[in-house]
Amino acid sequence: MAAITANGVSKRYGTVTALDRVSLSVEEGEIFGFLGPNGAGKSTFINVLLDFARPTDGSAELFGRDCQADGVSARERVGVLPDGYSVFDRLTGRQHVAYVVRSKDADDDPAEVLERVGISAAADRPASDYSKGMKQRLVLGMALVGEPDLLLLDEPTTGLDPSGAAEIRSILREERDRGAAVFFSSHILEQVEAICDRVGILQDGELVAVDTIDGLRQSIGGGTKLLIDVGELDDATTEAVRGVDGVETVTVSDGTTLEVTCTNDAKMDVVVELQRRGADVMNFRTEEASLEEMFLAYTGGSRA
């Protein structure tokens, strides 16, 4: 059964459209990255799943249970790290986890949960004294209680240093391998690229792409980027390369290196064109397009 099913979910605030007919499905056992610039509507979508916000149109389900009509049972098998939360000022980390254990009727040991997210030393301090990163770890720990079948995480690595983010990623992999679905939003591409099985890109409330990382690479210029060192380069040559069929972008770095993104088929045509222009090709490399470039291609370069 699908962990998340969204059918044409729209959300309008007055004249502003925050979500525009978003449909997607996330299966158990996969890590799904929900990618988009700030303000694209990622949190709004997650808030609809949690019934913090009601959709203007369409509907969403978690494990086949309607998020609005049947919200409580929809959330039963879900662990959540919501956007814009704050911890309970006076409760300790341990009490936070104990609250979730009781609410979910689980039997986790709060100490073990805190150990797993790396804040057991601070277990008995009030959570309001925690740093942003420790709060993120605490709430992630709360989300892990009761072995949920779906983790719904809104920007989980915010406030964490790179090694902290890597720790979180390895926890998410463990959860996925256990069989849980992981759905997390991020505006940081490296986070998503590093662990996601599939990615959805949201732009101005519209889901503009859903695919695997490889699939996205395929669909953008064959995913190929050429780096060509030439002895000498003039503007006419650059223009000529730009005119080759299948070439999408051409930039020059260091005066003598051409960076060309193009379809796979156009690779040879580019080299042939350079030869014809009498350019001296000294070196020739190809690179896979990074997610960042794909992201820019999809969102029209408006990365926030």
């Binding site: 949690l50 019934d51 913090f52 919200g71 409580v72 049972s73 959330r75 039963e76 879900v78 959540v80 919501p82 956007d83 814009g84 939360y85 704050s86 911890v87 309970f88 000022d89 936070h96 979730v100 609410s103 979910k104 709430v139 709360m142």
Partner: peptide, 17 residues
């Protein structure tokens, strides 16, 4: 206002509860 309500309502409990 401060957002701690979101943690409570992320759990399987209703607003009425």
């Amino acid at each position: 206002t401060d957002g701690s309500l979101l943690l409570s309502l992320s759990l399987p409990q209703s607003r009425r509860e």
